[in-house]
Design a protein around this nucleic acid. Structure first.
Lengths: 252, 252
DNA sequence: AACTCTCCGTGCGCTAACGCACATACGTAA
DNA sequence: TTACGTATGTGCGTTAGCGCACGGAGAGTT
């Protein structure tokens, strides 16, 4: 059982870990702890203290803000391209948002203290490679959040759904996502019926197909052109900032 | 003339500069260059290279994204509490957004190279105080952007206007802002008429008063309770992360 | 095979915000 | 003072998205 998971899962499945220089990876790997991340689990609560940072490999986390009246809105997603817990090295320790598992799967966690030591480890006069990588990731995350703001302002539910599907798809190995419309709605902060309608349109046009809790993307290219520019902006920026020149490539 | 401006303006008017440890401030101050920042000036263009970072003192900058169809939306504002050009130390060098002057005034600029050297200057095994400060500011900025996203999703134009007025007011020495409704509308990414209506309501309720290009906040407290929670979330987070009670309160 | 739970489809009326068109009123500068 | 440019006020019709209510239908369980 354990052997099976070790075969199926390894730290390189997370793009950040994969693009660490050999030396750092070797130092860090022994401290990485593989954990299952079940759907709905809350890994980070508004104002709470984080003990670890999390590197998803097959799971996807959703950062969102829950309002006083209970409504909520997603701020960004974190999958195998990133890490949860940037506030640890940014120095704020906590943020006013929440992180829950949007797609069940596995991830690695690392004690915050260890991560910090490596983060602050200088390479000569220059800052360390981990710091460099994490800050670039943070900038990419900022772009993602910014684009969410823009998208929320100007684009239709259908466009936003397309964007969201594409971003989620990019973090998964298959072209099928296990996800109810209700859940998607709560991520995007819109009505469930709005998703039903938008998804219905996309299905009618042959871009996706779905059944009870499962959505399959059929025509990815057309879905992309159906989406707003926000998807491409985010995608481009992630590639630019985190292109793993050489090591593991991000599936485009 | 020059003497007059030197008397009127000094780097401590920028909260980040003001909370630097003495030693760093002394090193840096000689390289700070006071510049006027006229309304509408573009300090940062999508994809462009920054040569300097900018510390506003009496000016306010707006970070926004301009879409393919010309529409735009503000992502965040930067005033005397912050700095423009985080992508320089975050490692991305550029971002897909634009920064323009929203309120004319003065600011200091610093050569990017100099800032970087100080940023990477380690204090013993720990990272430097400037790094610490700038990263905490960046986290606060992330909160601001996140809250913009949430606000765009769920709150009315009137609430958003209130939030925006308050955030802008906090960056100014007076309770009057020089600003046309047209300009505010383009910041928020809504119709000009929408602002006319919302501002009319606020005026009727005695929270603000305005005339042709000038808005005065009369009852700040009531404006706050009229605004959505977003203002308070952002404000709290800035205070928490960058509280300048006294001078240096840097390494945590 | 029947049951049941949850997910999805659909049809209302309602409202906030949009887009457009045009009227008015302010303030600077001749 | 008058005149002109620009900012603001207002009134449409239109639309996307909301809130609610309920009907139907998978998919897993017993």
């Amino acid at each position: 059982m354990l052997a099976a998971t070790s075969l199926l899962h390894n730290p390189h499945q997370n793009h950040l870990l994969a693009s660490l220089p050999e030396a750092i990876f070797e130092r860090t790997a022994p401290h990485l702890e593989l954990i299952p991340m079940p759907l709905g689990e809350v890994y980070y609560e508004c104002g709470g203290q984080l003990q670890h940072v999390y590197f998803p490999i097959t799971s996807i986390l959703s950062l969102h803000y829950v309002m006083e009246d209970g409504a909520s809105a997603e701020i960004a997603g974190v999958g195998n391209e990133g890490v949860l817990g940037i506030s640890l090295f940014m120095g704020g320790k906590t943020t006013p948002s929440r992180a829950t598992v949007q797609t069940a799967g596995y991830g690695y966690r690392l004690k915050g203290q260890l991560m910090l030591e490596e983060f602050n480890r200088a390479g000569g006069r220059r800052s360390g490679a981990l710091q460099n990588l994490l800050l670039r990731y943070t900038q990419a995350l900022i772009t993602q959040i910014s684009q969410t703001a823009v998208c929320n302002r100007h684009h239709s539910v259908e466009q936003q759904l397309s964007r969201w599907l594409l971003l989620t798809l990019d973090r998964l190995p298959t072209n099928e996502l296990t996800m109810t419309q209700e859940l998607i709605a709560s991520m995007l902060g819109v009505r469930r019926e709005g998703i039903t309608e938008a998804a219905g349109n996309l299905q009618r046009e042959g871009l996706i197909s779905y059944r009870r809790g499962h959505i399959t993307v059929i025509d990815r290219d057309r879905l992309e052109s159906h989406s707003c520019e926000c998807y491409h902006v985010v995608k481009k920026e992630f590639n630019r900032l985190l292109s793993t020149n050489g090591k593991v490539k991000v599936p485009v």
